[in-house]
Amino acid sequence: MRYTIIVPVYNRKNEVEELLNSAESLDYPREEFEFLFVDDGSVDNLKDFLNDYHSKSKLNYRYIYQENSGPAGARNNGMSNSDSEYFLFLDSDCLLPPQWLKEIDLGIVENNYDAFGGPDTFHESFSPVLKAVNYSMTSFIGTGGIRGSEKSVEKFYPRSFNMGISKAVYDKIGGMRLRYYGEDTDFSARIYDAGFKVGLISEAFVYHKRRTSLPLFFKQISRIGMSRIVIGNLHKHMLKPIHLLPAMLILGLLFLFILSILIPSIFSWFWIPVFIGFLLICLLAFYQSYKMYQSIKIGFLSILALNIQVFGYGYGLLKAIWRFHIIKENIENK
């Protein structure tokens, strides 16, 4: 078989059903690919659901159960239980457009990629909150284009929500070595270090739900901030001043707050420019979001999502610095 699509799952049976429903429309020969769902200790009867699922287009799919060990362990388990030419990774909260697999195949053939990834975007059926989160995670002012844009502030590192590798990559460097924090970014860096050809297949996008509420989005983005410090410890070149800007912003605002209490007379000299800059960024976010969705509500939600992303990421950076560098918590297996 040419492709095994590995999907780690933990209590996400409803997402698996939506993913499979979208996969029914994939424009690619059924004998050339399979889905491998790796159940990471779920208790929602995913196995029974898959046993009862009847594919309208004769999709091939398999199921593996493991004790809970995290998404990286699930992907490694999937790779060790497959002998396809390529392993593709998806998150369970993704939906697939019909051309997804065909675009991947075309990208591999044209560019001879050993490893690759595609972007994520929104589906029209997504809720206003999901669309706002999508704006924040894909806009240049939100992430700098690092999740799959042709214009990016740094080299493209495939992420496991939409990523693939050849079996030759797995045979040479093995699987993912981190459990939770930045396991896919570390994996991509090791692939580069091993000399393999890595690239972006921009047309192979997926519809990615991510987190369904703003509080859950904050929790997710703070973990991503923590992972940047973990990655920086393993790959020094991957922790740059630009990555620390959200943490510096939080510390700077805290310093200004304390200073303005101690010296009230300087309040206007510092806070007025800060407020004007903040307002301009919010207006830009609203404009870009409104242009994308034609919705005032989503425009305001996008402002909230962008601020949650910046401050959540900064909080995660500071938390990781405290845990792994100040109190010296063991960073291994993170």
Score class of each variant (00 low, 15 high):
Asn307Asp: 07
Phe257Ile: 05
Lys172Arg: 13
Ile281His: 00
Phe37Asn: 03
Gly316Ile: 04
Ser213Gln: 06
Asp184Ser: 02
Val7Asn: 01
Glu203Trp: 09
Val109Leu: 13
Asn333Val: 12
Gly164Trp: 14
Asp193Gly: 00
Arg159Glu: 12
Phe267Glu: 11
Leu244Val: 09
Leu96Glu: 06
Leu318Asp: 14
Asn233Asp: 13
Ser125Trp: 00
Ile191Glu: 03
Cys282His: 07
Gln66His: 11
Ile221Met: 07
Val169Asp: 06
Arg223Lys: 15
Asn77Cys: 15
Ile165Cys: 05
Lys131Trp: 05
Ser295Gln: 03
Ala74Pro: 07
Phe49Thr: 03
Ile263Pro: 14
Pro241Ile: 01
Lys172Asp: 12
Arg223Ile: 15
Leu96Tyr: 07
Asp171Tyr: 04
Ser268Gln: 13
Leu253Lys: 09
Leu283Ala: 08
Leu304Ile: 15
Phe267Asp: 10
Gly148Met: 08
Asp27Cys: 10
Asn14Gly: 11
Ile242Trp: 03
Gly174Phe: 02
Ala247His: 05
Leu262Ala: 11
Glu150Ser: 14
Gly182Glu: 00
Ile272Asn: 12
Ile64Cys: 03
His235Cys: 01
Asn14Ala: 14
Ser55Gly: 06
Arg190Thr: 04
Leu36Asn: 05
Leu259Glu: 15
Leu96Trp: 06
Asp93Met: 05
Tyr135Lys: 04
Leu96Gln: 07
Gly117Cys: 08
Phe278Cys: 09
Trp322Ser: 11
Arg177His: 10
Phe161Arg: 04
Lys102His: 12
Asp193Asn: 13
Leu88Asn: 07
Met79Cys: 14
Ile261Phe: 10
Ala72Asn: 09
Ile224Lys: 08
Tyr181Val: 09
Ile308Thr: 11
Phe300Cys: 05
Ile296Glu: 12
Asp83Trp: 07
Gly252Ser: 13
Tyr287Trp: 14
Lys102Gly: 10
Ala305Trp: 02
Phe33Ile: 04
Glu24Asp: 08
Ser260Ala: 10
Phe49Ile: 07
Leu306Val: 14
Lys197Gln: 04
Asn76Arg: 00
Tyr86Lys: 11
Ile6Thr: 00
Gly107Leu: 11
Met1Val: 11
Ser268Met: 14
Lys319Asn: 12
Lys131Ile: 01
Ile5Leu: 01
Glu24Pro: 10
Leu130Met: 12
Pro71Lys: 09
Ile64Met: 02
Ala320Lys: 04
Lys131Leu: 07
Phe49Val: 02
Phe286Trp: 12
Cys282Gln: 10
Leu304Val: 14
Val274Ser: 10
Cys94Arg: 05
Ile64Asp: 03
Gln309Ile: 08
Asp184Phe: 01
Arg2Val: 09
Leu318Trp: 00
Arg2Ala: 09
Leu284Thr: 12
Ser127Lys: 00
Phe140Ala: 11
Ser136Trp: 02
His235Asp: 08
Val206Phe: 03
Phe205Trp: 14
Tyr113Gln: 03
Asp184Pro: 01
Glu31Met: 00
Ala194Gln: 08
Gly199Asn: 02
Ile276Ser: 07
Lys131Asp: 01
Pro97Glu: 11
Ile191Pro: 08
Asp120Pro: 10
